[in-house]
Structure formats: structure tokens, C-alpha cells
Write a protein that binds this DNA or RNA. Structure first.
Length: 664
RNA sequence: GCUGCUGUAGCUCAGUGGUAGAGCGCGUCAUUGGUAAUGACGAGGUCGGGAGUUCAAUUCUCCCUAGCAGCACCA
């Protein structure tokens, strides 16, 4: 007999080899039906797997949503694989885990990769397998037997994988009924019928590399989203639709903010309305850095390749750099412009080397430190074509970039000050939450391990000292994700619909000052190396504006709204008055337009509401006679009747940037 | 860069082996209306580019190119 302790503290004696399912049935038929798996001493296990010793046992039902979803999605992935092999004999299975909202499975098809048209019939087959309620049975195999089995079945990927497991290992496999099996650690539900055939949907196909490595064969991946019931699935599909409505590329076009065209792929044509947002952010950032003791500089776009060789970028980063020959093109000739005799210049992908060159001008004393050099630096990076994405991933972008040159003993203090500045900026931009993460040394890197140890510890310590290394701030360390020259702290913003975006960063770097020979004179009269802190808060203006558009769904806060108000007339007789009102608002710095078109007021209100104009000032003859306006706020039906002076004062105050507002 | 899908009017999209259509937008006219679409008329397209098959290609095939989704990449 073994002793089973239940979550309520009660315990019972059962025979060795009793399954959690039997215990559930013993407790009650309702639970027996609802139980999906068992948590044994904190580890999730199959409900049909016999118990072999005294344990603490909790039964998992759909109420334990996180665990239940994980189980279901894992099972959906297996059902997907089984369905695909039924419909497309000869397809090899490889790997298929659960994801944040569903599951996928990577296949090696016998013929062409799958297409979207294949998805409906695969879905049908999955539904059939689920409805057949096939039992999922765990079995332990000896490694070599399994390899032999996979080879016999022509499953070369599976065989390769199994062969890499330690020799003599026992490997678990799961049977679906008696006719299909996959190698899997588990756990699984007791049978396919525990899944809801209406709670999943296959979403798309894509390519994916075997083991995620570009050098390996490309497999055909099928993605699905999977849930516990239809209601959850529909809610998820609604969320996707909501995210689609916020797409900054769509809103950017609708709101006439910017465009991209193939002649300059990956670079943004900012329209007047979009660039207003940029200008407001830039002015805001200048006020912020001025107040935080930075000096703004401007450095060259083009530098000799020699300089990039010295900084190390040419060696580690040249595949992402644009280089041009220092040569006058010959417009007459048809052939290549480059003669091979000219020197090469490279367009900057980063601002840091140029900032070191500014630092190196003149002799710096320890008294000059920390020296905080800021630049709105326009960088170009030759990103892979497939990576380009609206404003989020571009080839030309402008950073709010700065490099803080400081002494060793100033690092923690500077990082902490930056943490505070970043927090303030994100809050003022209208984000409620963010997470801070520490990206640790990558494989491909410069510098000694001791320097990396030190650099990582400094960043870690600063966040701990700032009291931000907590769950509340989403504190987490990410091995292998650092830059090639330094570890980095990353700020991840959470937007209005719960998505996260990596924006700000600070990195502590000893490599570049060394390579470019930056030094200062210390108290002792000797030369010392400064440490360089690379940092940005927005990251890039392009991307940050994209994030803002998606976060606010285009309804920008008033200070950022491209058009802050429209004065719309009801009758043409009110046109002169409307022009006068517009003039007064403009004089107060409000971005306002007149709508004097020969259209009905309904039409004008609708158009500007759809256009996300935050304030519509309606004027007819009544307002003209009384010197008033009828103010209608975006999304509201009620109006306020105000004198023009009142409206000007109100809007002017509301339109103040957040940093100026809070200063009042 | 890899895999799949897509490219038709300014925008969103329909359509066909015999050189094209809708809605919105735009223009003109009528209308002067009180808070989410007034009506009529009109202009507007080398159907992404190139090659091939065909009597004939926007439609079928191939190549290129760009966009989209994912993968890889992301200082």
C-alpha cells in the first residue's frame, strides 16, 4: 500500500500501481470526468500512469487553466501530426511543441511543402481523430529499439534525434490508439476525446529549419491555435482581430502618417502628419536629456572603412553595413562604378565609434566624467529582406542614442539614474508597465571573461540597488542575448493589449574604449580607460512611433495627435467666423484645420471621428452670433458650449506635453 | 536569406483565354443642412516587370521584383 496526500490535506491508502484516474473515480464521478492529468509532487503526469510510492497528488482539471492549456496544446500538436501522416503518407514527423497560444508541428513532406489549402482537410482529419476518442498510452522503450523502429518507418529525423540521446537510455513514446506513435516526454491527456474539436484552428503554414538552424534542411511547419473550449478560441480570434485593427502600417496609411515604397524598401517616407509625432517626441527627448546632464552632438554618416575596422564593426558586423566607394560615379559608362582603386567608406550602423572620437578630442580629466554624449543619430543597417516590417524593422532609423563615459566607480550610479529616467519617460508616454531584463554574454563576442563578469555584475547590481530586480518589474536574465561588445539591460514595454516591445537598453562596454584608445587623466596623474555606457530609451524613433500607434490604436494623446482639432461649419455663412476661430487656435499653438466644405455636419463629424481627430469644434450661425464653439470630443456624443477664449485655454493646456504639464 | 501566399483605379476588393468592374475617395452641379455617410453626373487602370505557350494572355507556364505570414537574423 502507498499513501496519497490530497491538496485538502486528507490522505488515503491505496494499492501500489493505482492510477490517479482511479483515485479521481473513487472521490467522485464528476471529478473522474473532469480530471485531465495529475500533479505528483509538483510534476505533471499522465492520469493513467500508475503511482509507485507515497506522494502528494493534485488532480488537474480545466480550472487549472495554465496546466490544462499546456496539456491540451501538446495533444493538439500530436493530433495534428497524426492527421497529417494519415492524409499525406510518407510525410516525416519531427518536432511539435505547444506555444503561447497554441501549437505547431514541423514536418518533412514527401513532396511539396504544405499550403494554406491543405489546412481545412487536415482540420477535418484532426476532428475525426478527436471524435474517435483514441486512448493515449505511454510506453517506455529502449533507445536502440526505438532508433530501429524509426529507421524502419523511414523517419530519419526522429531516428537522428533518438540517436543523440544517451546510449542505453529509456525513452518514452505515446501511442494514439494502436496505430500511431510519437516519441515524447509527455505528459498527455488520457485520450484524444478530452480535447474539444471546436476549440482549435489551424492558422498558417511556414518554413522552419530543422533544429532552428539555417544550415539544416527546411521543414514545413503548420501552426494552430488551441484552447479548452470554443469560447476561449473565439476570444483569441477576437484578440487577433483587435491587434490587426491596430496595425501601424494600416493606420499609418489611413491617417496619412507615412509610406514605404519599393524604391527605398525598409526606409520611411514621413508625411507631414506623421512627422508631427516625431517632432513632438524629439522635442520631448531634448528636454529630458538636457535636464539629465547630457550634451547633444552630431557625428558623420560616412566614415572610412579603416575606422570601422579599428572599432571592430567591420569584422563582426559588416554583413549588415552599407559601404560605398569613395569615388565619383562615371555616368557615361555602363559598367560597374567601382574601379577597385578607390577607398571604401561605410555608412554608420551605430553611433558609438564616432562618439569615442568626439571624446578623444582634447585631453579629458577625471573631473570631466561622467561625460554624457547624446545624438539623434541616423543609422543604416542592411537588414535581411525578410526581416523588414513597417516601422518596426527598417534599414534607416534614428536613435535617441547616448554614450556615457565614466569611471569604474560611477557605473552603478549612472545605470541607476538611467533606470529612473527610462521609467519616467515610459510612464509619461502613456505606458503602464514594463519589464527589465539582463541580456548576458553571447557566443560571438569581444573582450575577456573577467570583463564580462564585471560588466554583467555591474548592471545586475544597479538594478538590484534601484529596487527594480523584482517580479513587479519582470526582472529576468537572458543568457546569450547580449551584444557582441557588452551585456545589456533591456526595457520591454507592455502595450494596451498586453503585447510586449523591447525598446530601451543600457550596456556597459570596456571593449570599444580599449579598441579606440579612449583615456582620461586620473587623480593620480596617470592615464585610465573610461567605461562606456551605451544607452537609448525610445530605441529608434521609427519603431517607437510604430509602438505608440499600436498602443493607442491611432488615437494619440492630444500632445502627439497630428491634427489636434478641426473647426467644422454647419452652414457656409459661418465660414468667416470659423476662419477666425482657427486663427486664434493656431496662434495658441494648436494644430487645427478648418473644414468649410459644402457637406452636412453629420458627414463632417463622421469623417473626422473616423480620422481620429481628438476635438471637433462645430460652428453654425448660433455660435457665430454668440462668439462660441460647440466642442465635441472624439468618441463622445455630448458637446460643451464654450467661448472661443475658453476653448483656446482648455485645448492649450490639454495639449501640453506630459513633462511640461507635470511641471506646472 | 529560406518556405508559403499575394500583387487589378488613390484606398478596399470582385472578375474573365477574346485588352475590365464595384464601393469609398476625387472632380462638377444641385442642395445651406445642427453632431458618425444628401443626391445626380463625371474623370480615373500598359490588370507589378520580363519571357514563353496560344490566332489571342490581365487570366495558363517560367523567371524577376515587391508586399504579407512564419523561419533564420536583430548591433
Amino acid at each position: 500500500m502507498i499513501k496519497i496526500t490530497l491538496p485538502d490535506g486528507s490522505s488515503r491508502e491505496v494499492a501500489m500501481g493505482t492510477t490517479p484516474a482511479q483515485i479521481a473515480a473513487d472521490i467522485g464521478p464528476g471529478l473522474a470526468k473532469a480530471a485531465l492529468a495529475a500533479k505528483i509532487d509538483g510534476e505533471i503526469r499522465d492520469i493513467m500512469r500508475p503511482l509507485e510510492q507515497d506522494t502528494e497528488l493534485a488532480l488537474i482539471t480545466s480550472r487549472d487553466e495554465e496546466d490544462a492549456l499546456e496539456l491540451a496544446r501538446h495533444d493538439y500538436a500530436h493530433v495534428l501530426a497524426e492527421a497529417v501522416q494519415n492524409i499525406f503518407p510518407g510525410t516525416q514527423i519531427t518536432f511539435g511543441p505547444s506555444t503561447d497560444d497554441g501549437f505547431y508541428y514541423d514536418f518533412a513532406p514527401a513532396g511539396d511543402p504544405f499550403t494554406d489549402e491543405d489546412l481545412p482537410k487536415i482540420e477535418e482529419e484532426m476532428k475525426r481523430i478527436i471524435s474517435a476518442n483514441k486512448p493515449l498510452r505511454r510506453e517506455v522503450w529502449e533507445r536502440d529499439d526505438l532508433i530501429a523502429r524509426w529507421e524502419k518507418d523511414g523517419e530519419t529525423f526522429k531516428a537522428e534525434w533518438a540517436a543523440e540521446l544517451p546510449k542505453g537510455d529509456e525513452i518514452t513514446i505515446y501511442w494514439s490508439g494502436d496505430d500511431w506513435m510519437d516519441m515524447c516526454r509527455g505528459p498527455h491527456l488520457a485520450s484524444t476525446g478530452k480535447l474539444d474539436p471546436k476549440a482549435f484552428k489551424l492558422m498558417r503554414v511556414s518554413g522552419a529549419y530543422w533544429r532552428g538552424d539555417q544550415r539544416n534542411p527546411q521543414l514545413s511547419r503548420i501552426y494552430g491555435t488551441g484552447w479548452l473550449n470554443k469560447k476561449q478560441l473565439n476570444a483569441h480570434l477576437m484578440r487577433l482581430e483587435e491587434a490587426g485593427k491596430r496595425d501601424h502600417r494600416k493606420l499609418g496609411q489611413e491617417m496619412d502618417l507615412f509610406h514605404i515604397q519599393s524604391e527605398a524598401q525598409g526606409s520611411i517616407f514621413w508625411h507631414a502628419k506623421g512627422f508631427v509625432i516625431w517632432r513632438e517626441l524629439e522635442a520631448y527627448m531634448r528636454r529630458a536629456i538636457d535636464g539629465a546632464g547630457y550634451d547633444e552632438i552630431k557625428t558623420p554618416q560616412l566614415m572610412d572603412v579603416d575606422q570601422w575596422e579599428q572599432s571592430g564593426h567591420w569584422g563582426k558586423y559588416s554583413e549588415n553595413m552599407f559601404a560605398v566607394p569613395d569615388e565619383v560615379p562615371d555616368a557615361e559608362s555602363d559598367g560597374p562604378v567601382v574601379t577597385g582603386t578607390a577607398g571604401m567608406m561605410a555608412i554608420k550602423p551605430m553611433n558609438c565609434p564616432a562618439h569615442v572620437l568626439v571624446f578623444r578630442q582634447g585631453i579629458k580629466s577625471y573631473r570631466d566624467l561622467p561625460l554624457r554624449l547624446f545624438e539623434h543619430g541616423c543609422c543604416h543597417r542592411n537588414e535581411p529582406h525578410g526581416a523588414l516590417h513597417g516601422l518596426m524593422r527598417v534599414r534607416q532609423f534614428t536613435q535617441d542614442d547616448a554614450h556615457i563615459f565614466c569611471r569604474e566607480d560611477q557605473i552603478v550610479e549612472e545605470v541607476q539614474a538611467f533606470c529612473a529616467l527610462a521609467e519616467r519617460v515610459y510612464k509619461e508616454m502613456g505606458f503602464q508597465g514594463f519589464a527589465i531584463k539582463l541580456a548576458l554574454r553571447p557566443e560571438k563576442r569581444f573582450g575577456s571573461d573577467e570583463d564580462w563578469d564585471k560588466a554583467e555584475q555591474e548592471l545586475r547590481q544597479a538594478v538590484i540597488d534601484a529596487g527594480m530586480a523584482t517580479q513587479e518589474y519582470g526582472w529576468e536574465e537572458l543568457p546569450g542575448e547580449g551584444a557582441f561588445y557588452a551585456p545589456k539591460l533591456e526595457w520591454h514595454l507592455t502595450d494596451a493589449i498586453g503585447r510586449t516591445w523591447q525598446v530601451g537598453t543600457i550596456q556597459s562596454d570596456r571593449v570599444l574604449p580599449e579598441r579606440l584608445d579612449a583615456s582620461y587623466v586620473g587623480e593620480d596623474g596617470g592615464r585610465h580607460r573610461p567605461v562606456m555606457l551605451h544607452r537609448a530609451i525610445f530605441g529608434s524613433y521609427e519603431r517607437f512611433i510604430g509602438i505608440l500607434i499600436e498602443h493607442f490604436a491611432g488615437k494619440m494623446p492630444l500632445w502627439l495627435a497630428p491634427t489636434q482639432a478641426v473647426v467644422a461649419t454647419i452652414v457656409t455663412d459661418a465660414n468667416d467666423y470659423a476662419e477666425k476661430v482657427v486663427g486664434q487656435l493656431k496662434a495658441a499653438g494648436i494644430r487645427v484645420e478648418a473644414d468649410l466644405r459644402n457637406e452636412k455636419i453629420n458627414y463632417k463629424v463622421r469623417e473626422h471621428s473616423v480620422g481620429k481627430v481628438p476635438n471637433i469644434l462645430v460652428v453654425g450661425m448660433r455660435e457665430a452670433e454668440e462668439g462660441k464653439v460647440a466642442l465635441r470630443r472624439l468618441g463622445q456624443k455630448e458637446q460643451q458650449f464654450l467661448t472661443v477664449d475658453e476653448a483656446v485655454t482648455l485645448l492649450r493646456n490639454e495639449a501640453l506635453p506630459p513633462d511640461l504639464k507635470s511641471a506646472e
